[in-house]
Design a protein around this nucleic acid. Structure first.
Lengths: 192, 192
DNA sequence: GCCGTTCTGGACAGGTCGGTCCAGATTGGT
DNA sequence: ACCAATCTGGACCGACCTGTCCAGAACGGC
């Protein structure tokens, strides 16, 4: 009935995720988005509407991917304490393995956009809730198998652990050496 | 010998701090800096050199102010645990009292600029070290007066506490209700 | 009152920004 | 072979960006 699209939406979206992750929303130009996706301006705008809409789609895609990775981790048969350590170090591994040592796209978006766009805010909050729920599941597993102490509720601990790992990412942006960050993870685990 | 400046450098700098805190480095235009400081373009560039130099000065000024506030807090005669709670809630009070619920300028700068500018990176790292040292002092006080347990070293705990309060600020950007954040502070204190 | 020096207002330059628009290309259905 | 519908390349728009420049203003010292 009509001319078909000559590119794959999700492939283009993946490239946009990387751009926004690199430079944030404001500092990513539509020219750069065209370059990295390989799309012309018209195709980009025809497919995604606006830079802001594309940003929202990028955040949702990133969040869905992360949620999948979390499910994979939960399928592990490690005990609760070991799995919790894995969860925390996996986040930091990803950051320290990145050339620019980028913080999680979600943190970047929280800081840059925050609550100024309700739809984006909700996407960020949903992702944060998902992550906290996952951490809570891990802690609960540890409390049941005895590898973690059970004096404080898993949901409460998850909120603290989530905040701590986000803060460690911020710290990793400016630290030269990873050792203090890993040390903080061990200190955190020693408290549980 | 020459025409004197018709404005106060530090007053202008204070206005620049607020601009950069509002919008970050990239999204703050030099026009906006002229408007908020009341300076003309020539005066702004004559006094501060470039937008990047002004940004660095703004960060240093903000850090110095924060360091002063920390010294004031340390002069309190609260016991360690109560003072630690005050330190953490003061940070969050400031954020939740702000209309845009801005995260600390240092966090913003870490996320936006990171290590891409060595001079700025050092300023951010110095401030983070100062803050951790202060938290460490507070924890040590608590361990000496018995209000906090002494099983983990104060420096180690300070790193965790610093990360947690930074993470809670990120969370505060998108949460609608402050209660979960305060609850996390209490959970954190319950672990010590 | 004049001089050397610094400051100031505003115009200007050269580039980039997000977004629109349209003519022409490309398809599936008939 | 033709149509309706969608996609695509690239020109284009008006706004905004950082930084420069210069003519003239405003001072302290003499």
């Amino acid at each position: 009935m009509a001319r078909p699209r000559s590119f794959d939406d999700d492939t283009a979206l993946a490239a946009a995720v990387d751009d926004f992750w690199d430079s944030g929303f404001g500092a990513t130009s539509t020219d750069e988005l065209c370059r990295s996706t390989g799309l012309s301006r018209s195709s980009l705008y025809n497919a995604f509407g606006s830079k802001r809409d594309l940003y929202l789609r990028a955040i949702l895609r990133y969040a869905a991917e992360k949620q999948g990775q979390r499910a994979d981790l939960l399928a592990s048969d490690l005990d609760g304490r070991a799995l919790l350590r894995t969860v925390l170090t996996t986040v930091l591994d990803e950051q320290w393995g990145d050339d620019d040592r980028r913080t999680c796209l979600m943190i970047n978006a929280c800081v840059e956009v925050g609550s100024s766009d309700e739809e984006i805010r909700r996407a960020l909050a949903d992702n944060a809730d998902d992550f906290r729920r996952m951490i809570s599941d891990v802690v609960r597993r540890g409390q049941l198998d005895g590898s973690l102490t059970g004096t404080v509720g898993a949901d409460q601990l998850a909120a603290v652990l989530h905040a701590a790992v986000d803060g460690l990412q911020v710290r990793s942006r400016i630290d030269r050496d990873r050792e203090p960050v890993d040390h903080a993870v061990e200190t955190l685990l020693a408290l549980l």
